[in-house]
């Protein structure tokens, strides 16, 4: 399980921003791709632990799930993937492993007050 170390990195980043901007943070918004290798539930529970003894204590982690989008070489357009167990175009069925979205693991916004 590497979610705790991921959560600690998120807290560290947010804390640095809080100090730099002189604000208090109520929530951290994160984008989490379906292929990020991070389990959402584990990240949520690790977050609280990671916030202990930091300026982020009591803050919330808001996770936005990012679905996988592949690029179909035949249709020549990005297509949402319906299952990570079958990498192919949902329209024409062409197999592809060109991933255009879904690996995200990003802090995107901070809710301050």
């Amino acid at each position: 399980m590497h979610e705790l170390s991921i959560a600690m990195s998120i807290v560290e980043m947010a804390q640095a921003e809080a100090l730099q901007r002189g604000v208090q943070i109520r929530a951290v918004h994160v984008k989490l791709g379906a292929l990020s290798g991070v389990v959402k539930q584990a990240l949520l529970s690790s977050y609280e632990m990671a916030c202990d003894d930091t300026l982020l204590r009591g803050s919330r982690l808001v996770i936005e799930d990012v679905p996988v989008v592949i690029f179909c070489p035949k249709c020549k357009v990005p297509r949402p993937l319906s299952s990570v167990q079958l990498f192919c175009c949902g329209e024409c069925g062409t197999p592809t492993s060109e991933i255009v979205q879904g690996r995200e693991l990003e802090v995107v916004a901070l809710e301050t007050q």
Binding site: I6, E106, V107, V108, L110
Partner: peptide
């Protein structure tokens, strides 16, 4: 006076390091 909560955009890759 308690300021309104607001959303500050940051965009940082967590695994950047």
């Amino acid at each position: 006076m308690s300021p309104e909560p607001r959303l500050v955009e940051v965009r940082k890759n967590v695994l950047k390091q």
